[in-house]
């Protein structure tokens, strides 16, 4: 397993992208989008920023498949925790159907 060295140019580009993302997310927060769109926009930008950090700063893009699986497992289990907990809260007010 030889190590992959990421070039300074890539690091710098990611750095700039992260700064742009920060400014963007702060700016769009002042607009009142309909419905849940505000949260969706903010979280989409956050996810993109996080992905850039993970892929390049943390070298995930150049890592073995195992590391991808490990990280994917964390997301998967987080999704389980959220989905099943909300399967309770979101259906509490439903009326009985039987």
């Amino acid at each position: 397993m030889s190590e992959h060295i990421v070039s300074v140019k890539v690091y710098f580009a990611i750095f700039l992208a992260l700064l742009v993302g920060t400014v963007l997310t702060a700016w769009v927060a002042f607009f009142d989008f309909p419905g849940p769109l505000n949260a969706i926009v903010a979280l989409t930008i956050a996810c993109i920023k996080a992905a850039l950090v993970i892929l390049y700063f943390m070298h995930m893009r150049y890592s073995s498949r195992l590391i991808w699986v490990v990280f994917g497992a964390a997301l998967f289990w987080l999704a389980i925790m959220f989905a099943l907990t909300f399967s309770d809260y979101s259906t509490r007010s439903w009326l009985p159907v039987f």
Partner: peptide, 22 residues
């Protein structure tokens, strides 16, 4: 094993629909 924890909440005012899933 991570998908079944709600069976401890059947009588704890958990939604019955979640109860069915669990």
């Amino acid at each position: 094993g991570f998908l079944v924890w709600g069976h401890h909440l059947f009588v704890a005012s958990q939604s019955v629909y979640a109860g069915m899933i669990f």
